Amino acid sequence: MTGDRAEMLRAWHDHLTKDRRRSPHTVRAYGDAAARLLDYVQMRDWAAVGRVDAQATRGYLAARRSEGLGNVSAARELSAVKAFISFARTRAGLTDTAPPRLRGPRIKKGLPRPLTPDDAVNVADAVEQSAATVWIGLRDRAVLLLMYGAGLRIAEALSLKASNIPLADRLVVTGKGGKQRVVPILPVVRDAVSEYVTSCPWPLPANEPLFRGAKGGPLSQGMVQKAMAAARQWLGLPDTATPHALRHSFATHLLGAGADLRSLQELLGHASLASTQIYTKVDAATLLTSYRAAHPREKEVDENQ
């Protein structure tokens, strides 16, 4: 199937907005990356773009890096380009629609282990994009957003029953030791779960697990970890970017935004405040890293060493 540049980008935009229901920010970023790739390879039909391999993709990224693209931006660019090539292969009717096997640049993550807010959202988007089917992608995205948006443990997210649907703005969660707590549910999390429920091909009786595996049984932690590992590779994130890191990210970002420790303790379901206090060290470490990267005097000292 052939078409000009504008038609290809329009089809890509429609796929992201209508089929994948991506955010406007993601649609814009992925659209820009696709346009740059088309200009680089000078191709104007789906089959040709679908044949773009790892070597050609590596050359494109090298060209982008020569323009001053940093590791984080390069990893995101690679994720977008892979998604576009996979889409092109689907449009061309190719049997193998998997994107080129190419690992993104390593992004150094000091202590602590949480992801940045952008990376947390990008991971949720990446698991959706890289899934074998639409409903599984929506399922995995919903699980990860529950962990990041509500601070749930992976076991807590997977223990939810279909009776919890539709989600309200608050959710009662049973954590370790049978201790219950109330967590707020953001609209984006609620919408993600609703989209999964609508697309799920399996019956969801009220007293049964909400999240289902590909064959209809309860979704296992291993499958969520596998999806996260694939997204991590797409984005070039370190091995510390695990599902549980999303819960750490939830806590760290709340603390950085001014949440007090007692409130954070309740949201996380920690029995002891000492367990929550680790996030003060996490936030301080992040602040110190940012200070050292930005302060002129620190830069001068580093250059003279």
Rank of each mutant, 00 (worst) to 15 (best):
Trp135Ala: 10
Ala83Glu: 05
Phe87Asn: 02
Ala75His: 02
Gly110Ala: 14
Leu94His: 05
Arg113Gly: 06
Ala124Ile: 04
Thr97Tyr: 07
Val134Phe: 00
Thr97His: 07
Gln129Cys: 09
Ala132Cys: 05
Ala126Trp: 01
Pro117Asp: 09
Gln129Asp: 15
Phe87Lys: 02
Thr95Glu: 15
Leu111Tyr: 11
Asp119Cys: 04
Thr95His: 14
Arg106Ser: 12
Glu128Trp: 02
Arg106His: 13
Arg106Phe: 06
Ala124Asp: 08
Thr133Ser: 14
Arg101Met: 05
Ile107Gln: 15
Ala75Thr: 04
Trp135Pro: 10
Ala126Gly: 08
Leu111Cys: 07
Pro105His: 04
Ala83Gly: 13
Leu102Ser: 01
Glu77Pro: 00
Pro112Lys: 00
Arg101Pro: 08
Thr116Tyr: 00
Lys108Gln: 14
Gln129Ile: 15
Gly110Met: 06
Ala92Gln: 12
Lys108Pro: 05
Gly110Lys: 11
Pro112Cys: 08
Gln129Leu: 15
Gln129Gly: 12
Leu115Asp: 09
Pro100His: 07
Ala98Leu: 14
Gly110Ile: 00
Ile85Tyr: 10
Ala83Cys: 12
Arg76Ser: 05
Ala126Leu: 12
Arg101Lys: 15
Val81Arg: 09
Val123His: 10
Val134Ile: 12
Pro105Phe: 10
Ile136Arg: 11
Pro117Val: 00
Ile85Arg: 04
Ala74His: 07
Ala124Gly: 13
Ala126Phe: 04
